[in-house]
Amino acid sequence: MRKNRYISAGLAGMLLAALAISLVEISISGCATKEDVILATTTSTLDTGLLEVLIPVFEKKTGYRVKAVGVGTGQALEMGRRGEADVLLVHAPESEEQVVAEGHATNRKRVMHNDFVICGPQADPAGIRGEKSAAQAFRKIAQSKSLFVSRGDDSGTHKKELEVWEEAGVKPEGHWYQECGSGMGQTLNIASEKGAYVLSDRGTFLSLKKNLALVILVEGDRSLLNIYHVMQVNPEKHPKVNAKGGKAFVEFMVSEEVQKVIGGFGVKEYGQPLFFPDAGK
């Protein structure tokens, strides 16, 4: 019967809500005038703590605020394709080249590398310890049907793992091959709990080593190189991106100063660097 009043009460409620939301926007994000740079990156750069060191330096230097969103490389590249990020820091060269070729990303620069390592339980049931070829090691794991935990999340590490399987000529299937769909840290935990083999980037493995019942069994194969590139999302294709901020971040990452920080990162804690600076290569 008092329909109109209910409608106006409802409207008033929504207005109040909108008001409250805008209030919090002002109060929490405070300096909304500061320009944001959205960085879509792989979990490994966040989980190792490297970006927590680099981002404050960048913010102080340029005045931009960086929003580092940690996702798998696959999702990070997809965010670039959709123009949802301004700059990407990822490690899946083949997929990256494709995104650049499609015109979604530009100004792609090599930043650093570390390498992948094949880890497994100390007992090494498949007998791959010291194996020189990663593909050969994978073949042995498949033949002995030893448990292997895969990221299964379309990340850079996952893509690399699939490459090695292809090289080994094995189709990874069966109960011994388990995709956990998680980040690197979680995947290592699972592999450790199950006594399984796993492919990991060295940095994440080193930073988590203290909690893991896993050791490095195979390393040093050229095919296990893990190369990180930074690139900005192409403003010609995605006019809404923060092109200046993206460009600034690319330049920052390959600057001499940052390259030095990268080379020294983790030495104190783990006795060896987690990443090797590569700019200009």
Binding site: L46, E52, R65, K67, A68, G70, G183, N189
Partner: peptide
């Protein structure tokens, strides 16, 4: 929120991150 440090990191997302980092 994206779990952005100093900005949108809330307790639950921080917990996920620390678990991923192995800092149980």
């Amino acid at each position: 929120g994206g779990n952005v440090r100093h900005h949108t990191r809330v307790l639950t997302t921080a917990i996920v991150l620390e678990v991923n980092k192995g800092n149980f």
